[in-house]
């Protein structure tokens, strides 16, 4: 146990002290933030305004809480996965730079080494994402939000679940990588691609039907949707308080991926938890299996 803790601490220290690795993991959230500030928030604001019924007097606070909720959920949905992938690339970097040889010659089992990468990725990713979440809450507080402590706790719970999901997924994918080229390729693909497929840049509902169907089979989609639901629920509550019709609120939910169809049925929040948790457990089992059955060359 002490060795696991030591190696985990080492991995976390290396991740946070390796400026290149640390900043690479923040590229996607930063790009997203810049996109929102310069462009996306305006687009979302316009679409929210157009969706309100004629004559409805919306407040800036309601509008900002909707845009803020969209930003927070997008940012966290992306960074939970991309930060997990980049911090887990330490496992590959250690192989590429042969540092793993120096660890392997110590009296520590291969399984403990694998577990240390998993635990450290989870902790590093959670630290980064929790910091991002706090910044998001401060942003929401100043720009307008109706979020209460329950909404915030739900977001933190989603964050934990999605961080665990990102950690387990990246552990399985990164396990067999061993070169710097592969590190760069995976880092680039994940950073560039995940924002699109999780609906961070554009809601999934705006994609073509075929693509929507494919995305509905990806477990990460439900992680994003959980965050959307919890980041926007206070705004929907406020809309109800302002007596906006339920159909309109429902339309908002569909348009902003709070409601997602899987095989023509809307997936409930509990089912979303089940899907993400189930796949997380599956990836963890696969990762354990890979570690247990890794042969010496």
């Amino acid at each position: 146990m002490n060795k696991l803790i030591s190696l985990t601490k080492r991995n976390i220290k290396v991740y946070f002290s390796d400026k290149k690795m640390f900043f690479t993991s923040l590229i996607t959230p930063i790009i997203l933030l810049v996109l929102y500030v310069t462009f996306l928030s305006g687009v979302f604001k316009d679409s929210f305004i157009n969706a309100f019924p004629e004559g409805f007097k919306y407040t800036d606070k309601l509008l900002n809480s909707l845009v803020g909720g969209q930003l927070i959920s997008s940012l966290l949905a992306v960074s939970c996965i991309t930060v997990a992938f980049t911090s887990n690339l330490l496992m590959v970097q250690d192989k590429a730079e042969k540092t793993i040889k120096d660890i392997n010659i110590t009296p520590i089992s291969k399984f403990t080494i694998g577990l240390s990468y998993f635990v450290s990725t989870f902790i590093s990713t959670f630290i980064v994402n929790f910091t991002v979440t706090i910044v998001c809450f401060i942003y929401a507080h100043f720009f307008g939000t109706y979020m209460n402590i329950n909404d915030m706790l739900n977001i933190v719970l989603d964050l934990l679940l999605l961080t665990l999901f990102g950690t387990s997924l990246s552990s399985v994918i990164n396990f067999n990588l061993s070169t710097q080229g592969q590190v760069s390729a995976v880092g680039t693909i994940i950073s560039a691609g995940y924002g699109f497929i999780c609906g961070a840049y554009m809601p999934i509902s705006s994609f073509g039907k075929g693509l929507q169907k494919v995305i509905s089979f990806l477990p990460g989609t439900y992680g994003t949707s959980l965050l959307r639901n919890h980041a926007l629920s206070s705004s929907f509550r406020e809309m109800r308080n302002q007596h906006l019709p339920e159909e309109l609120i429902d339309g908002f939910k569909k348009a902003f991926d709070c409601k997602i169809k899987l095989l023509n049925n809307y997936v409930s929040i509990n089912s979303m938890y089940l899907i993400v948790t189930g796949f997380t457990l599956l990836f963890i089992v696969i990762f354990i299996f890979m570690n247990k059955h890794k042969k010496r060359s």
Binding site: N2, K3, S6, L7, K9, R10, K13, V14, S17, D18, K19, E97, K98, T99, K101, D102, I103, I105, T106, P107, I108
Partner: peptide, 29 residues
């Protein structure tokens, strides 16, 4: 104990940290 051809120290960590981490993997704390 092995000194490899290429230095396999954690380059971003300090000398003290490198030794402390390695020692802990042998339960020397």
């Amino acid at each position: 104990g092995v000194v490899f051809q290429d230095s396999l120290l954690d380059k971003s960590l300090s000398v003290y940290d490198n030794l402390k981490i390695k020692a802990s993997l042998y339960n020397i704390t």
